[in-house]
Amino acid sequence: MRIEIRDLRHTYPTGEEALKGVSFTIEGVTPVAVVGQNGSGKTTLVKHFNRILSPTSGAVLIDGVETTKQSTAKWSKRVGYVFQNPDDQLFLNSVRKEFEFGPERVGVPAADIQKRLPEIAELCGLGDKLDSHTFDLTATQKKFCAIGSVMMMDPDVIIFDEPTCGQDVEGSRRLSEIIGHLEKRGKLCVTISHDMKFVAANFPRVVALCHGRVLIDGDSREVFAKPELLKKSFVSPPPISRVSLGMGFEKPAFSVDELVETMKARRRKMA
């Protein structure tokens, strides 16, 4: 899987220049997180991956093919997009119908759909909710219903727009599981998130945007080792990373265990 973004610019009809020349390439299936303050252009950027938006100038290439070559509906087979607000996406009267809708549209055989359904419902924690109306779901369940309905289409890339927003601990854990599952199955996952703890735990690569440009792009340890630069985009590394940086460690820790390990190692060295 290869997504190449070449000097991408996007100006909305209102005259708002949301992207001012963004270039980077995603190769392989290592999960990528896109971070940055509100209005920095994250949503605008990822909406180019399946041609919901077309570049004002520049280009986005999916495995070498310019996105403008075909319609969003055609791209939906390969590039799945989970909207930030599930209410924009869900409109049928049961979870089961939501799950079946996308794959039916892109011509997946009925037998395959039925085979995928229980597994994905289970992953999304909706195994016993398949025949519930989507109105009767909690906010978290709705979000997972939207995620599941896109996973059902089995695209090669899945984009999550702020899936952690309004999510509890249980929801975040489930999301990590889904991201792991996708990577294992050879699917690329690109996620917008404001939850840096979640980002540190799940995404080896982080791209930070600031006012329509790439601020930093790289390995999450390297990105979170630069809190001063990140501040420009109102992003701060997870608290535990800040603690470890503050203590003078070179690489930021991403969990308490890690920090403890590094401290122990340091003590052993000193002793």
Partner: peptide, 15 residues
């Protein structure tokens, strides 16, 4: 417009 966007992303042809 928003809902239509979401629909196209799920394979509905609007063009």
């Amino acid at each position: 417009a928003v809902i239509q966007e979401a629909q196209t992303a799920r394979g509905v042809e609007v063009e």
